[in-house]
Computed example of a mutant assay.
Amino acid sequence: MPEVKMTVNGKPASGQIEGRTLLVDFLRENLGLTGTHVGCDTSQCGACVVHVEGRAVKACTMFAAEAEGMEVKTIEAMAEPDGTLHPIQAAFQDHHGLQCGFCTPGMVMSAAALLKDNPTPTEAEVRDYLEGNLCRCTGYHNIVKAILAASGQDVSKIAAE
């Protein structure tokens, strides 16, 4: 079996893989980074979103070998080493943008990519960007509110739902 090498969350990572090994499986099974979730295996739900070379990617749509030599960032790298939440994670907590939490890692990673490209999105832009992320619990309202809050926008006039 070939070996794949990449940088994951700022650290060198490698492992023996079959050619058909998906990035999400490599992260979870080879590296033990289980924060990246497998939801649908069809790229519909977005629970597996990670950043590859700074871009949001559904890790169930990419072979691990395609990430050879690349920088991969998972949800595990969002918080500070001392456990302090990233502002997006804190906003999800503060604005009740999660319930069961299954979609949350993918939502947070997608939100980080959005805010990197568009630091002050409108509500419509957030909703449009999250089109590829499914949540079966929250109805999205509080997720959108959390992302707007993480961008530094005033969300005090947005009613809680």
Rank of each mutant, 00 (worst) to 15 (best):
G35Q: 11
L114D: 04
K58V: 04
S43Y: 08
M6V: 03
P105H: 06
A47G: 01
A64E: 02
A113N: 13
I75Y: 15
T61K: 05
Y140K: 11
G32P: 04
D41T: 12
A65Y: 10
F102G: 06
G15M: 07
G35I: 08
I158E: 05
G152I: 07
A91M: 10
G101M: 02
Q99R: 10
N9V: 08
T7N: 11
G54I: 04
L130Y: 13
V52R: 12
D25E: 11
E68Y: 01
V155G: 09
C40I: 08
A67S: 09
L134P: 00
T120D: 00
H37V: 06
M109R: 06
R136D: 00
E123M: 11
Q89D: 11
K5I: 00
R55F: 02
K5W: 03
H51C: 05
G15R: 05
G69M: 10
H96Y: 15
P2R: 11
F63C: 00
G101K: 05
A160V: 13
A79K: 14
F63P: 01
A113G: 09
Q44H: 14
K145T: 14
E161R: 11
Q44A: 15
A150R: 08
T61L: 14
V50D: 05
E18H: 10
Q44P: 01
Q93C: 13
Y140I: 02
L98W: 08
E18P: 00
H141W: 02
L33N: 04
L31A: 02
A56S: 13
L31P: 01
F92A: 11
E18A: 13
T36I: 05
H95F: 15
H141K: 04
V57T: 12
C135I: 00
H96M: 13
